[in-house]
Amino acid sequence: MKRWLGKAEVVLGNHSDRLNAINIFPVADGDTGTNLYLTVRAAVAALGGASPETAETGNDVGGLLSRAGQAAMEQARGNSGTLFAVFLCAAAEPLAGKSRLSAPLLATALNRAQIRAWSALSEPVAGTMLSVLEAAAHAAQAVDAAQSGDDSNHALGLSLDAVVEAAYQAVVRTEDELAQLHEAHVVDAGGVGMLLVLDCLRSAVLGEELQDELLDGLHGYKLQDPHIHEHMPADDGVEVMCTISLSPLNAAILRQRLDEMGDSVIMSQVGGAQSQDDDDESTVEASYRWRVHVHVPDPEPAVALIRSLGEPTDIAVSQLAVPSGASTERTSPGIDDPSVTGQSRHEY
């Protein structure tokens, strides 16, 4: 698992420019590759070196991936990075306590991940990395059924081959599933990123080289192809991200209100229920940590709403489009708080 995430970090770093070049959905801001790379890098960093957590998890595949996923979620960038973090956290759950990966476990983990990823978005859209993850999960389930739950390494190899092939075909289909991609004659950047992540998993588990020809023929992916977002109208507004502890009721309220304010709303739990300090716990609704992501025209109402429901941490406000030649750092007007960062980073 460490080898998988390490490979993914290197591969996404190498492919980040091409992924950025074809990134036009949901915002043509050209940073899907960068966001995926930085999010995976956070996951890898969480596994580096010896620590008490490392000793406790030992050979627990799920425990290790859970730690990586939590770190990725806390530092996720953009839509694509947030969904990758959701994928890691969800996939870790059925692997908890397991010392090795098998075809049945892979099928369960990918299915859990695709369900969680679709549900994290208020308005999920087909033709994105969601579709790629869904296709991969279905392929793993089909192989597992055909092999009658065989947990041998051979069956795992067959499953991983099928997962990568299904993910590739799903990436090809994205071009015709989304009008914006069809018009631009490119495939979805986030979908390609997920395909690369899955091929890294196949390579790490089977001890085989990455498939260099895997992306040959994908529209918009040749080195000489232009960064198509550079010639598209700039998107107004900002991306707001934070982590906050909320009860399920307040989380539902926040999601509904954010849906009314903006779009690309993603909310996903970070870990389990938090302990209560109240003497009478029966009267206090359990709270959970949530990672929140939204695109809004103006950050101030969104930040005010979030703060009205709890105490957020790591609030990041990022422009969805940066004028040519502008500084990569800015201060958000009207938000005078050291906990709010104003980095001009974008999304998938």
Rank of each mutant, 00 (worst) to 15 (best):
H138D: 15
M129W: 06
S275R: 03
A117Q: 05
P338L: 07
P299V: 15
A42G: 02
A28H: 06
G334W: 12
Q114L: 08
D161A: 15
S203C: 04
D188M: 09
P297T: 03
D314H: 07
V292P: 00
V186L: 01
G69Y: 00
L36N: 02
M194Y: 07
V132A: 12
A109E: 02
V27P: 15
N79P: 03
G237M: 06
V86F: 00
R257K: 13
T331A: 13
L133C: 07
Y168L: 13
R307E: 12
N23F: 05
T313F: 06
H154F: 14
A326S: 15
E285C: 09
L246V: 10
E177C: 11
S122Q: 12
A179R: 13
Y288S: 04
C89D: 01
R289Y: 03
L223C: 02
R289F: 09
Q343D: 11
S102E: 13
D259L: 07
L215Y: 05
R257L: 06
A302E: 00
L88P: 04
P297V: 01
I335Q: 09
A85N: 00
A46W: 00
T39Y: 00
L38F: 11
K222G: 04
Q224A: 14
Y348F: 13
L178C: 06
A179G: 03
S275I: 09
G271Y: 12
E213T: 12
